[in-house]
């Protein structure tokens, strides 16, 4: 069987006693979408920040294997190496696209930045790549020179995704990527994400409190409460046959729209 590209064991980051992320085990395989669900304060965003190297854990191990097969110990690696990984091998899609974009740089410049950061020096090629990725995320390429300040929330989010994908990362982290978007815009974004995951063979770790998003996108789910993973399994299994009391409660509270 193929090895996981990301492996966490006993991952812990404790802000206050029993608050944060406690002793989490997690594996992510190539090409799969792992959802982390739970209510506010469950530790899911902390877990995501630990997994993506945005924060260091207090305890535990975290190992990442890049597309070239090299292993990285993300707990012990230098800050320089982490930042490098975050700009090339990882994608990080923030909940608020304004945290993940340069609003006063054009859409094309936003997408091209990572390429220029790893040494791309041909303007024409960089621009061609930007056009390519804009179409991939369904933004009209004619808007390549427009500033994202003037984009809608959904477009900003799609631009953020394009900006992350340009270096062909193997792993993308998303924190509530559809939060703050209205329903039809969400549907369109989720669509785009599903297609990209499939077409590009990337793995995704997505944090969401929206079970509908989880069911649509995630192959497997982790349910978190009070900083711990209380249940995990295939998405449909966790949602259709929840074992833990809290999971049952969570699932029962989903509004059914049939």
């Amino acid at each position: 069987m193929v090895e996981p590209i990301l492996s966490a064991r006993g991952l812990t980051r404790e802000y206050a006693p029993e608050q944060g992320c406690l002793e989490v085990d997690l594996d992510v395989w190539p090409g799969e979408v792992v959802g982390i669900v739970g209510e506010s304060g469950s530790g899911k965003s902390t877990l995501l920040r630990l997994l993506s190297g945005q924060e260091r854990p207090d305890a535990g191990t975290l190992s990442f294997t890049d597309r070239a097969g090299r292993q990285h110990d993300l707990v012990r690696v230098s800050e320089s190496a982490i930042r490098q990984l975050q700009r090339t091998a990882f994608g990080i899609v923030h909940q608020n696209p304004r945290d993940g974009l340069r609003l006063r740089i054009s859409a094309g410049g936003n997408i091209g930045e990572r390429l220029m950061g790893v040494g791309a020096r041909h303007y024409g090629d960089i621009r061609a790549q930007a056009v390519h990725w804009l179409s991939h995320v369904e933004i009209d390429p004619a808007r390549i020179d427009d500033l994202p300040r003037y984009f809608s929330g959904g477009m900003q989010q799609r631009l953020q995704i394009a900006r992350n994908l340009v270096t062909n990362p193997g792993l993308v982290f998303m924190d509530e990527p559809t939060g703050g978007l209205d329903v039809s815009v969400q549907a369109r974004l989720l669509d785009t994400l599903k297609r990209l995951v499939h077409d590009l063979g990337i793995s995704v770790v997505i944090v969401t409190h929206d079970m509908g998003v989880a069911r649509l996108l995630a192959d497997r789910l982790l349910v978190m409460r009070f900083g711990r993973v209380i249940e995990t399994g295939l998405t449909d299994q966790v949602l259709d046959d929840p074992q833990a009391a809290y999971t049952q409660q969570l699932v029962a509270s989903i509004l059914q729209v049939s």
Binding site: G233, L234, D236, Q237, D240, D241, Q243
Partner: peptide, 9 residues
């Protein structure tokens, strides 16, 4: 039947 699909445990 659903257990044969891993949908139920």
């Amino acid at each position: 039947l659903k257990m044969l699909y891993g949908n139920y445990r």
